[in-house]
Amino acid sequence: MSEGIQARPAGAVPPPAGSRAAAEPIKAGKLRHPWRIVFAVVLIALVVLFVIDAAQRQAYGWQYVGKYVFDRRISAAALVTIQLTVYSMIIGVLLGLVLAVMRLSPNPVVKSVAWLYLWIFRGTPVYVQLVFWGLFSLIYPHIFLGVPWTSLGYSLSLGFMQNAFIIAFVGLALNEAAYMAEIVRAGLLSVDTGQEEAATALGMSWWQTMTRIIIPQAMRVIIPPTGNEVISMLKTTSLVAAIPLTTDLYGVARDISAVTYTPIPLLIVASLWYLLFTSILMVGQFFLEKRFSRGVNARRPDRAAAAGVLPAAGAPDGNDLGGKG
């Protein structure tokens, strides 16, 4: 059967339409937009005035901003903020993945438990949650692992729940998981059902189908909002004051200002550091999105042109990366 089945001849691209003689270019008076210029000038003037005024205003305490922006304590605190962000996002994404799969489970109890989790953690403020986790060891000083209403088993001390740093990233992660679950679920649902069917028909197991076929395709939908979540988490870490944890960027800035009576310059110092980190993340986000949208609209024209490939126009093509997302 190797006989006679020819691949499409190379270069079978239809000739470009409309190759008529070029018409005379239109010469017309340009439409003017005087108001655009007026608004631009007014805005620039306002910004300049604000900058000049701010530079001269004593209350900003610019000399303190300069003094503390590279302070050892501040940069150490910035590291704590980064750690909180990274740890809570890692746990949040993993737990979110589990919750998303639970929500898509055919088992109604599993589904309901996941829904209940989301309902509680998305329905209450994260600040309130963090206060609650700070008090957790008062409610449960230790946990008894064993047969209920007997003495069989042993008691696990929850002493580690008094470590504010652990409470902080666990508390943030538990909240984040609820949001990540929805992002992951949307990603999984964005993959055409035919993909799962094709994998099943090939004899692949559920696990293989998820890890090899569904999740890699869902990533394109999951990655961009997850980047946003990282940026959002970096800022949310400032709420760990609720636990209370004060070794993070905002906490240390506040502590210093409580001693020096210079709250405003230290707010600016903290903000500069947050801005630095979010800017870096936004640049990373830009490249990540560019990478994951590759092949969605573009057909890698370099190679397609070389191979003389016709786009499968008009075919209801479930495989085309485009369409969704």
Partner: peptide
């Protein structure tokens, strides 16, 4: 069980209307 059903399926090839190739 799912595993046994998968073993049966891998002896049967299926071609779909909408191809269902893995786009990635």
């Amino acid at each position: 069980k799912p595993k046994e059903a998968a073993r049966q399926r891998r002896e049967i090839g299926m071609v779909f209307q909408r191809f269902n190739l893995f786009p990635h």
